[in-house]
Design a protein around this nucleic acid. Sequence first.
DNA 1: TTATATAATGAGACCGGTCTCATCACGATT
DNA 2: AATCGTGATGAGACCGGTCTCATTATATAA
Lengths: 358, 358
Amino acid sequence: MKDSGKARSVTVSDVAREAKVSKATAARVLGGYGVFSEKVYEKVMAAAQALDYRPNELARSMTTGKSGIIGVVVGDIENPFFSYAVRGISDAARAAGLNVILANSGEQIEAEKSAVRVLMGKRVDGLIVTPAESRDIAHLRDIHRSGRPLALLDRALPDLQVDTVTVDDRKAAMRATRMLTAAGHRDIAYVTAVDSDRHEYRDLEQVYTSSVRERVEGFLSVCREAGIETPERLVRLGATSPEETRTIIQALLSKADRPTAILASDSLVALEIFRHIRYMGLHIPRDISLITFHNADWTSVTSPPITVIDQPVYALGKMVAELLIRRLKGEKRPPERVVLQTSIIERGSVGPPPPSGR
Amino acid sequence: MKDSGKARSVTVSDVAREAKVSKATAARVLGGYGVFSEKVYEKVMAAAQALDYRPNELARSMTTGKSGIIGVVVGDIENPFFSYAVRGISDAARAAGLNVILANSGEQIEAEKSAVRVLMGKRVDGLIVTPAESRDIAHLRDIHRSGRPLALLDRALPDLQVDTVTVDDRKAAMRATRMLTAAGHRDIAYVTAVDSDRHEYRDLEQVYTSSVRERVEGFLSVCREAGIETPERLVRLGATSPEETRTIIQALLSKADRPTAILASDSLVALEIFRHIRYMGLHIPRDISLITFHNADWTSVTSPPITVIDQPVYALGKMVAELLIRRLKGEKRPPERVVLQTSIIERGSVGPPPPSGR
DNA sequence: TTATATAATGAGACCGGTCTCATCACGATT
DNA sequence: AATCGTGATGAGACCGGTCTCATTATATAA
């Protein structure tokens, strides 16, 4: 217990001195670069062992310019959608010997900017972002301009030519909506979590998130195709928290022309909707039908189980990470836009609308 | 488009040159330390603005020795228990101006060691770990010895005197078990996710995770107190994945003396159990009762909703982070061991055992 | 044997910040 | 007028690695 106190860390120089070689030589051995003889290798390694040398990755990063870290900015880790995706990213990163540093934007553009600034300051090798908005993307342009690879997860940015992995949101929304119109529904609500000042929907100009936009477009087009008039009257934005969602769903279900079916944009929204439907004493699918995006755990164990749009979330994360990693390994190629396919898992939450007049 | 290519970043020296002051002075202004005149401040800031200077946090970290990052090693982010806790940690970290770098151990001791090594190499300011084992903790001792604060989340290590935040696992297990014995159950299974070579339980020596150990102890003591013989015959370890859990639950439910109640150690385990019970056509709580640790989203929306042990997960994360942060801000005090209280949320999954003979 | 290529090593600059210390100017003190 | 204290600034070392380049030793070719 004599080496109490300081604990200043052992450096290359210390090892070099111990091994009686130059700092440069010791560095070569310890850093595993350049050439050196067998004999020197042995000596240096023995010294390193004896002194319990641990490389300072920070110093290493500073000279090389690479940190071995990829930065990830997501909307909210609490949302299982993102935690699965992050898992996919982490796995891909670990496989490539990289680490992940995670930041939450809370879907707030300012928080996103700040997170990006911090991560860039830390000289992450690349960034994966789920952009909260498509309007204000100067900070993302900067990343790209500074030469670090950027990849987009789940949401595309028309104006930004970078690797992007999304799902076929429009098609998914269309299929789900068609399933509902085919069952006879004419009053279908679409509830989504995009940040918005008001819950009512006016037009697409209001929506700054590509995935949401595509879904709304898909939803509306199928509705119109089925001859439903002003389907946008039942589109609701701003379900960003349980409280907001509750407010929305409450208003929606107490309307005179209450919708007979609801399409939810994620499992968190769907859970609140499910709760409220139950709370009102309504029965799924007899009184109201429900489909949600994201095959969350719980959707299969409710009564009835929920029909969902199954997004390959893990693959989404893994693929965007792999794209990014390949690029920062030096691969030169034009930006890729990968669109993964979704599927619908039919369970028990869709039925015909209740007899008219309710 | 003339500044194509390189994009070498702007440094303090560049700003200094532009502002016609010395590097030291520019550094003082940009770093916000030392003293400088109003006039110089203006000049430097203007130059920084013009050149679009962004500090290199890496270089800054190297000299100061602080990285502004706290490392977090958890078992599995996919488990909502951990993702909530991580959210608590992130929030506390951001409030203190720190970042979080996340690593998954997958509850594997070797992965945990590797993660710790990497994070230490990156010179994180402090670490929060959910130790996978209590036997092999040399790597954790090293952290502590190297002078960086370490804090433990959810699991205590008797031999390691560091800040630790856990929940009252023993008491929680006891209360849940008592609820089951009070309802008349005599054959109660406890299914937990600790890593183990075999699923059968022999003795406590087999369990290297404090939280699991406490729960098992609590469970067994209440069983014995209720006069149940060899309650350990229904303790099952190793439910570390859906597949493993399925194997365990399948074996358990097809036994001749099938348990009439099950206590699950986390929501992932409980979900598989719930599924299997339903798959076998059994009815909760008529045929079998179920209680689980962790008030996961889905537990309130099943039919029947599940009675759960509610752990203050977010607070757990937040508190352990705050403890760590206070310490790395220089606070001197003996290691603290905080034990947060749990509560039981009674819902509909507990009933009397089915008439004997089944 | 001498010239030349090649492998191994050492010296020291460098990355981009922080920080110590010396210097200088200027107003206050005696 | 000489001394002192103080605020502002500059020069340069330093953190712990990497990397370039020069030097030396050894092997191969002429």
